[in-house]
Design a protein around this nucleic acid. Structure first.
Lengths: 228, 228
DNA sequence: GTCACTTTCTGACTGATAGTCATTTTATTT
DNA sequence: AAATAAAATGACTATCAGTCAGAAAGTGAC
């Protein structure tokens, strides 16, 4: 036990040492501009060793992605932990704010998320435990949101004509869009549109959440939709 | 005139011939898996020639991106052209549907859009006429949306307590989020969540638009927001 | 038609880097 | 300390973006 266990723990430490180094290097530039040799040197190892712990550069980056994903989910979990007297609708807003704050505080992890989502080589994803964990986290985050919506439908704060699953996905995806823009803008990317238009991101996000909330808040008067 | 002009036209034709070839090659695989030699061969030229027409591989891909961007904008323009009796709110919905349809019909262009937005080397963007055109198109699209909202505020279909610019950006970004998910899902990416949950994208999008519309539709009874 | 000159095109070459693997170093057991 | 196993190394290979000296094609003058 002590034997095998210690080995495994040692191995895990090395792995983390490499991920630490990779974060330092990649976050200071970008994935493309970082080489495996640089990362190895930063970790005080040689290039070959990196490949004993990670299949390739992409898997190493996905390991970083997983860290970010874990961190984000721990924040979501905190929202739901312990006792609180938030309505479902409030929970949704808080989750949105949590997400925005995460992206602002950890832009590099968000960059990693975006890269992760752009990977089209399904093969690479299926065989990676890091990727699996990321997917697992995403599923969990969605479940948090579904829970919030169900709470909201019970306490009357959320319109119960919606399907919680669907609504959760919609909120999830649209919030993602907003934060992606926020992120791009923070990187001085094309979205100086915001500057041009003198729109503050904080205010924008506030309005976005209000819009969502307004849209899904329960209404007194029911009306029939025109869809067949 | 005839002289210089013919030259320029010839050059333009070559350029398009290269972009055509690049689309065929890159769309059949992916940017990373496509080499400049392959593209050159597909175009019936040699690698060196490609570099007479495009600074580098990225610029060539941005040229493809621009095509997609132009195509999308032409579809938006069509929505606004001619006479119609849509309300502002209806125009917003139609724009959203137009966008979704574009992504479904041209997933490869959308992939290009996502890549484009991930470029963090601002230098590369500023010196490229293709990138400038993309940015220009984005601005124009946003202006279409602002116009629709202003129309809506006048005809009473859109809540005029919102700032059109802000609202336009919000709708823009959140719709982008939805379509990105649609796109990822279509690529068999992690978002088999949708399958798992038995949610159809069409229905999802419908609900998303309804949610937005509900949120921004003008309300009879005004209420004060709690924000300082 | 051929010479001089310009424009366009070519593909061998260079440099960079991801990933491999035979060899060396270090740790563990007997 | 010898034998064996595990971990680490870095020289090597393959691939590919981007370059550039020279070839080929085009243009115009006579």
């Amino acid at each position: 036990m002590s034997k095998e266990e210690r080995k495994a723990r040692e191995k895990e430490r090395r792995r983390n040492q490499i991920i630490d180094a990779a974060e330092r290097v990649i976050f200071s530039k970008s994935l493309e501009q970082s080489t495996m040799v640089e990362i190895a040197e930063e970790a005080g190892l040689s290039k070959g060793t990196l490949y004993l712990y990670f299949k390739n550069k992409t898997e190493l980056y996905i390991a970083i992605t997983q860290r970010g994903s874990d961190l984000l989910n721990s924040k979501f979990a905190k929202v739901f932990s312990g006792t609180h007297d938030y309505t479902g609708l409030e929970l949704i807003k808080i989750m949105g704010e949590t997400y925005l704050n995460f992206v602002r505080e950890n832009p590099n992890y968000f960059t990693a998320f975006m890269y992760y989502e752009s990977i089209s080589d399904v093969e690479a994803l299926e065989n990676s435990k890091y990727a699996n964990q990321c997917d697992q986290n995403r599923r969990e985050a969605l479940n948090f949101m579904i829970r919030a919506l169900q709470i909201g439908m019970q306490d009357g704060s959320v319109d119960d004509r919606y399907e919680p699953k669907e609504l959760a996905i919609i909120i999830f995806a649209s919030t993602r869009g907003l934060t992606a823009m926020t992120h791009a803008s923070g990187r001085g990317h094309y979205f100086e549109l915001l500057d041009e238009m003198e729109v503050s991101i904080t205010k924008l996000f506030e309005n976005f959440l209000n819009l969502l909330v307004e849209g899904m808040a329960s209404k007194k008067e029911l009306k029939d939709s025109g869809n067949g």
